Amino acid sequence: MAPFLAYEDKGPEEPPASLAPTAPATPSVPLTPLVLIHGHPFDRTMWAPQLDAFSAARRVVAPDLRGYGASPVVPGVTPLARFAQDIEDLLDELKVETFVLAGLSMGGQIAMECCRRFPDRIRGLVLADTFPAPETAEGRAARNAMADRLLREGMGGYADEALERMVAPYADAAVKAHVHRMMTATPAEGAAAALRGRAERPDYRGLLTRLPVPALVVVGADDTFTPVADAEAMHAALPDSALHVIEGAAHLPNLERPQAFNEALGRFLTRVDGIS
């Protein structure tokens, strides 16, 4: 059966020679795969700097969520549980049994849902510029109103308005162009379905307190969608976590400051590889 989602699947099946054990009798062990879940309203190209940086040494899988990028659009309502099931199905198809799971913004909430649904497969969790609380009544109304607007007007106006909150006003022009391009290329029906589903998301705060694996919490210092205080609260709730605040970035530090983001992620992956 062909996977439902479009995706990138990069990296060696065996560890690079420089990382392989020197003793011939010792079997080489591949590094822990990394699975990357993009945010709204983006696509898998959001993770281009991380795909380039980490696929030389490990397998990296980055899907387009349903309704985004090259994946099929299913109008209506897409709950976070549906996104998580799609990811599980894709990883089953690709035979990725265990992995480090990283998600940004809505992708972080989907990653938390994955922790609820199939925790035994997750060796480490990266939560970037996200938060675990359920939606308020006001927030549900706002998300549904935005869904109505996107279906009525398309993505262009929203992309213009939100761009300099997604990335900082001082961000590199090429980064701004990439983010704007992802936003305007997203089908309005897919974005609206995700907004309606996200409005009904569960409360993940209790789940985080019981997470049995290490976690990394990352946030842009100038993020106004999910501010540093949200990241600090997740860090405090998680039993085993590191917090990394990236200066000079807003909601997409992996694109705005890829070197700093990759350094923090690389340290975390090295730790997970050592305990897997």
Score class of each variant (00 low, 15 high):
12 P>R: 00
116 R>I: 01
58 R>C: 10
94 L>F: 13
259 Q>P: 02
269 L>W: 11
228 V>I: 11
218 V>W: 02
180 H>S: 12
266 G>P: 11
84 A>P: 05
28 S>T: 09
264 A>K: 05
185 A>E: 06
91 L>V: 01
133 A>G: 10
170 Y>I: 13
171 A>E: 11
89 D>V: 12
204 Y>R: 03
207 L>N: 00
167 V>M: 03
232 E>S: 06
276 S>I: 01
53 A>R: 14
180 H>M: 07
273 D>H: 06
53 A>Y: 09
129 D>L: 10
68 Y>E: 09
211 L>C: 15
152 R>W: 09
70 A>F: 04
88 E>W: 13
128 A>T: 13
188 A>F: 10
88 E>G: 08
130 T>A: 07
66 R>S: 10
26 T>G: 00
173 A>H: 02
140 R>G: 02
39 G>F: 01
112 M>G: 06
134 P>M: 00
80 L>H: 04
173 A>M: 02
171 A>F: 08
5 L>P: 11
119 P>D: 12
38 H>C: 07
26 T>S: 10
84 A>K: 03
134 P>R: 06
72 P>R: 01
71 S>L: 02
86 D>G: 08
74 V>G: 04
20 A>E: 15
154 G>D: 02
252 L>V: 15
107 G>L: 04
62 A>K: 10
155 M>R: 00
110 I>W: 07
100 V>Y: 04
106 M>S: 06
93 E>A: 15
129 D>K: 00
99 F>H: 11
160 D>R: 15
6 A>C: 10
95 K>H: 14
98 T>Y: 05
156 G>I: 12
67 G>P: 02
130 T>F: 00
61 V>D: 04
17 A>Q: 15
105 S>P: 07
128 A>C: 14
115 C>W: 05
256 E>I: 03
273 D>T: 03
223 D>R: 01
130 T>K: 00
81 A>I: 03
214 P>Q: 10
25 A>Y: 13
121 R>Y: 05
57 A>H: 15
136 T>W: 00
211 L>M: 15
185 A>V: 05
275 I>T: 14
113 E>H: 01
94 L>G: 01
165 R>Y: 07
175 V>E: 11
195 L>V: 12
47 W>Y: 01
138 E>S: 07
147 A>E: 08
256 E>Q: 02
150 L>Y: 03
155 M>C: 03
193 A>G: 13
35 V>A: 09
216 L>F: 04
35 V>H: 07
105 S>C: 15
129 D>T: 11
174 A>L: 05
11 G>M: 06
266 G>A: 11
163 L>I: 06
201 R>N: 13
217 V>R: 05
200 E>G: 09
72 P>M: 00
47 W>R: 05
232 E>C: 12
175 V>Q: 00
8 E>W: 01
209 T>P: 08
124 G>P: 08
110 I>Q: 03
54 F>C: 05
267 R>I: 06
44 R>E: 08
29 V>P: 10
208 L>K: 03
219 V>Q: 10
77 V>M: 07
